[in-house]
Computed example of a mutant assay.
Amino acid sequence: MAEVKIPSEFRKEFGKGAARRIRRENKVPAVVYGHGDDPIHVTLPGHDLFLALKTPNVLIGLDLDGRKELVIPKAVQRDPLKGFVEHVDLLLVKRGEKVNVEIPIHTEGELAPGGNLLEHVLNALPVEAEATHIPEAVSVSIEGLEAGASILAKDISLPKGTSLAVEDDTVVLQIVAAQAEEPTEDEEAEEAEPAAAEAPAED
């Protein structure tokens, strides 16, 4: 995974008011932590961070007062309506260090005919990987799978150096049988009309 370099500034003001002022300047408050060090409070350029976070588990290079550090995002807080980044927690990592992350699951192929549904039991796969070689995603084939089939964590091929951080028999995806649709009110009315017409007239 390529490293994305983002400039950072130390943050000395805290609280909601300070955070709002930072965001008005199109910057994002962030906390850098890990390796037993005290948390470091910084601000990051909003646009650069937004672009970087489009890549899951992106490796970010920061200059912290002359110290070159590598971090990965661990918690991203976004505005629930507009979607812009409000705050981010960044974890310090080192080359060669193993970290636990969750990577996206991409599916390939088509299910067997029948209108069955694909259910993502896990939206992302927990794995352990070297900090500078975290896979961007894993691909899983669902070609021809029928209702009742499932894909377990151990069924997914992982790149060299990456291992599962969940039990082998954890269900990741499963195929669910299509549900019969409930009749609409109009359909129920149409079924009732012939029955009413066939009913014997009263004397």
Rank of each mutant, 00 (worst) to 15 (best):
P135G: 13
V42E: 00
K98C: 00
I60G: 01
T184D: 10
S157K: 15
A2R: 15
G34W: 07
G148Y: 10
E86R: 15
T43R: 00
D79W: 07
E191W: 12
G109M: 02
R20Y: 03
E188M: 14
L173S: 03
V172T: 04
D79E: 14
P126I: 06
L164Y: 10
A196H: 12
E143N: 11
E69C: 06
R95S: 15
L44C: 02
G148W: 06
L59G: 04
V31A: 05
H87S: 11
E181A: 14
A19I: 02
R95W: 08
G109F: 03
A197G: 01
A52W: 02
S163I: 14
I175G: 01
G61L: 05
Q174N: 12
L44P: 03
E190N: 03
K94T: 05
S141E: 09
A147M: 12
E190S: 05
G114T: 02
D63N: 14
V85R: 04
G115R: 07
N123T: 14
E188P: 00
I134T: 08
I151Q: 01
V176L: 06
D186G: 06
I156G: 02
E136H: 13
A197E: 14
A180I: 10
L164V: 13
K16I: 10
F50E: 13
L81N: 08
G96V: 03
L152N: 08
L59E: 03
V93Q: 00
